[in-house]
Nucleic acid binder design. Structure first.
Lengths: 141, 141
DNA sequence: CTATTCTTTGTAGTGACTACAAGGTCAACG
DNA sequence: CGTTGACCTTGTAGTCACTACAAAGAATAG
């Protein structure tokens, strides 16, 4: 079960791109990857350089936190070489803003959690646990 | 449709705790809230001070990023007032570590995105978009 | 030919809700 | 007492981006 000149089989594409066959089939199903053709002698999906490139792009964009919807959008945009790229720019900035919002929330969270863990010096009985107390756990005064 | 002395109705509990009736019913269904009793003359769920306290606790813990599974755990632990609170302490520290990991990831992400948005001065044609290029978008050289 | 390892499809599960639809009940107003 | 309208009830399906599995088919090595 290795690739011939007919192209990569799904597990090879997966390995090349740091994904899994399941994810690749999923991407095909939801339409971010085109239906692979099944040439060669078998009924298996076969992939070429174009597919490697496209999937690599998808993974990079996903790693940057873009939703599959936005990835679809980016792919579509990149196929219109003569249009201006303002929309791509906008999507990237939007994502940056979203990440910044999330970062702020997480920092606030971290602060609260850090205070929480500092207030408990372990070895208490549950009923006097300062963590539970400051969360207002049920069953205390 | 207001509360009598039989207790709060679900929408009132929701308002008191910053949730929605849907979420409350969901919590009951998955067992972090006990099945409400339906006293009074009707068949509606009725809630008392204990429920307000419990749900408030749940929301606070969720806001700190604890999973519902861990919340269930914390609630269970807090009901054993004589046991030592080491486990609670451990769960909180574990969550802090998880948040720190996530923060690190997000900061790396932010960096990459920020570089990405800075490299595009808009108004380009798609085919020369530096954002798409650095993501390795399909259909370029 | 057979054994093994891949592939295929289809379906269901994850977490933590959220959204709806069809029907029941409450309190109040006239 | 009847009706209105706001709320409740249950049950089911949808979200997001996968992940897991089962049953069956195909490719390859020996």
């Amino acid at each position: 079960m290795t690739s011939t000149d007919a192209g990569l089989i799904i597990s090879e594409l997966a390995e090349h791109t740091g994904t899994t066959p399941e994810t690749i089939r999923y991407y095909e199903r939801v339409g971010v990857l085109p239906a692979a053709d099944r040439k060669g002698n078998g009924r298996y999906r076969r992939y070429g350089a174009t597919d490697v490139q496209r999937l690599t792009f998808i993974r990079r964009a996903r790693d940057l936190g873009f939703s599959l919807d936005v990835v679809r959008n980016l792919l579509h945009l990149s196929e219109q070489p003569d249009h201006p790229c303002d929309e791509v720019d906008r999507l990237a900035r939007e994502q940056l803003v979203a990440v910044d919002r999330k970062l702020e929330q997480l920092l606030t969270l971290r602060d609260a959690l850090s205070k929480l863990t500092q207030c408990c010096d372990s070895g208490h009985a549950m009923s006097e646990c300062r963590i539970l107390n400051s969360l207002g756990a049920p069953g205390r005064a």
